[in-house]
């Protein structure tokens, strides 16, 4: 564990708490992409299968369970609980059908694992989750774009999620310098970089709006 990784994890936790606060305080899921939450749940469930095979630390296991549980809860709220359910507008969240994200990532993961000779289902699903995570934020970014004016807490949610990814890149740099038994994984680096790059545009408008103290409005 290093400071970047821990700060990244905490940023991720804060983002989830902010999202829950956002849902509860406004009593609606307008501006929130259910699709992104569902993609994240697929990511967590396929990546954290090692909960059953490898024990890293209590912290690690606890966080994995917490991510799966909180994301499941958020999806349940938006899909089945009032008033979120009736206010959720699926037509605003139409970009990127789940299967068009899952299928290419699954194909790519299978190919990558064949090349690397990692043929256990857990390895293949883990690699799949690395690719899918890079795409998971895309529907949320499109929902923001549709409404243009981003509600405060929703903006913070995306900001903390982006900060988490940015801090993870610093964590990989740190680890490669200071950990003796560290093996590079370029697939992780590339998809992590792609994932972070997706946030850059949002970050720019977020920081500018905070600097000038105005509302966060995205350009058309």
């Amino acid at each position: 564990m290093n400071i970047f990784r821990f700060a990244g994890d905490m940023s991720h936790v804060v983002s989830i708490l902010v999202l829950l606060l956002r849902l509860r305080s406004s009593k609606s899921a307008v501006g929130i992409s259910l699709k992104t939450q569902e993609l994240f749940l697929i990511v967590f469930v396929t990546r954290y299968l090692d909960l059953f095979t490898t024990f890293y630390s209590l912290y690690n296991s606890f966080m994995k369970v917490a991510y799966i549980a909180s994301t499941t809860y958020i999806i349940w709220m938006i899909r089945f609980q009032e008033p979120y359910k009736s206010k959720y507008d699926a037509s605003q969240d139409s970009f990127l059908h789940i299967k068009f994200a899952v299928a290419p990532c699954a194909g790519l993961a299978l190919f990558a694992c064949l090349v690397k000779g990692e043929l256990s289902p857990i390895d293949i699903l883990w690699t799949f989750s690395i690719f899918l995570e890079a795409l998971a934020i895309v529907p949320q970014l499109f929902v923001l774009q549709r409404y243009r004016e981003v509600e405060n807490l929703t903006g913070h949610y995306v900001f903390f999620l982006g900060a988490y990814r940015g801090l993870y890149i610093l964590n990989w740099v740190y680890r490669s310098y200071y950990e003796q038994f560290y093996r590079h994984n370029w697939l992780v680096y590339v998809s992590g970089a792609v994932q972070t790059a997706l946030y850059v545009d949002f970050f720019y408008y977020y920081v500018v709006s905070k600097y000038y103290g105005g509302k966060l409005t995205l350009p058309t």
Partner: peptide, 10 residues
């Protein structure tokens, strides 16, 4: 054993 990057991460 070497741990591959990110396998022990969240």
């Amino acid at each position: 054993a070497k741990v591959a990057a990110a396998k022990d991460e969240l």
